[in-house]
Design a binder for these strands. Structure first.
Lengths: 247, 247
DNA sequence: TAGTGGTCTAGACCACAAA
DNA sequence: TTGTGGTCTAGACCACTAA
């Protein structure tokens, strides 16, 4: 893994604005800057990184568009507070999601093992049917009560031995990045409503046939390679999604 | 209503980039430019509207962020093709939505009348409970089969007499803009899964208790005034939502 | 080669917030 | 009054596409 340094390499072929984006993004991800903090004013970023104001503003515009920062004329630029609508635009962990919703998150492992890839999953992960998948099924709890059932399917070839970790405690994403250098940067998902099957209903402590919000997601690495196929069943009585629309 | 002219008023207090945005946005909305069309190159926009390249690019960046256009280095800038994921970020009509999904849209009016605002809707529309609402319930069809049941609730005071129109044929949005000067520019929505009640199930031609995707939406006018509260029940066997996530 | 968008600079003036 | 972000200009050079 290459960690971004806190400076800009003018010999690099990577555009200055992308380098600066990674630097600032890193400070936010690592929690170096946190909700409500004022970040250095544009004038200071210009001095510190020796780039023009247009370049600094290009980067800040990107972060504003992602709802990671907000600007106030005359006051400064601040780290945004997480909101629930981010669930539909950003890849956030179950833990983050629950914290935003005011719940105490919890996890129980239901299944962990290697399985041959079924045709439908193989197609979505762009691998051969029958190739090894690492499957992890986790019951997610909010304030101790079942909230969702999450089935992760990882291409085992990209992360052999991944299932040795304890994913009741550690986020899968972190292990992927730390042990295999795989950073999940984008995803496509489909959102549906379904009825709870007998098995799923039992695990989620709802009646068979209850409505569930069902999400299927393919997550891609930095190199645009599909790495994970995720299925999540959310209890409809406890979970909903938010989004903002414009014209 | 003030129609945007195809030129920039340098005496106006409105920023140049916003004026140019409205001009280009209008050409797309009105279908003057359509999917796949190349729009004039930046150099031409600079000449035609007499603004700098930075200003032109600021506007094009906005349109790219909204997925309305895309750029190809060395080739030009083009009008984007509509995609299903827009359903979660843009306000699109049922007709547009169905066309993107490859269905023939249809509409049947189920109810049209003035009702006193219930407490929950009044709160969301920021009006007094009991104030007049214009309620319109429409069954939406795709290829002749029921797809969704849509209940619109409009603050009647803002659009008295709105219910005289024939909204099996004409979009409600268009009447609001043409007859009352109300442009719906933003909305907040909540997405849930529910079970079909007996009444809804009958209208949608599904079994009672079937899963439905349920959306509640508050739509705001240009002045940020809540105008419409919408409830939509979608048949889960025919409708799903798509979204793209990033890190 | 000509034309396109991609990146970057060094300024300028304005509007708003806080002291 | 000072410092912040908001808007805008006039250039420059580069990388890619198509003829």
């Amino acid at each position: 893994m290459i960690l971004p340094l806190d400076r800009i390499d003018r010999m690099s072929k990577v555009p200055l604005y992308q380098q600066l984006y990674e630097i600032l993004r890193g400070k936010i991800s690592r929690g170096e800057w946190t909700s409500g903090d004022m970040i250095p004013p544009e004038s200071e970023l210009i001095e510190q990184y020796e780039v023009s104001r247009a370049t600094v503003r290009q980067v800040l515009d990107m972060l504003v568009n992602e709802d990671l920062i907000y600007r106030q004329r005359g006051r400064g630029t601040f780290i945004a507070h997480p909101t629930m609508k981010q669930g539909l635009t950003r890849i956030i962990s179950f833990t983050e999601d629950m914290q935003q919703r005011g719940y105490q998150p919890g996890t129980k492992i239901c299944f962990s093992g290697i399985i041959p890839a079924p045709d439908d999953i193989a197609a979505k992960l762009e691998i051969s049917p029958g190739e090894e998948l690492a499957r992890l099924e986790r019951l997610r709890l909010a304030d101790g009560e079942p909230m969702s059932l999450e089935q992760s399917n990882l291409v085992h070839r990209y992360c052999p031995g991944i299932l040795k970790g304890d994913y009741a405690e550690e986020p899968l994403r972190r292990a992927l990045e730390r042990d295999y250098g795989i950073r999940l940067v984008s995803a496509n998902q489909v959102i549906r409503a379904v009825s709870a099957s007998k098995e799923v209903a039992e695990l989620l402590s709802v009646q068979t046939g209850s409505p569930l919000l069902f999400i299927e997601r393919v997550t891609y690495s930095h190199q645009r390679i599909p790495v994970e196929f995720l299925r999540i069943h959310y209890r409809a009585d406890r979970y909903s999604l938010y989004s903002e629309l414009h014209e």
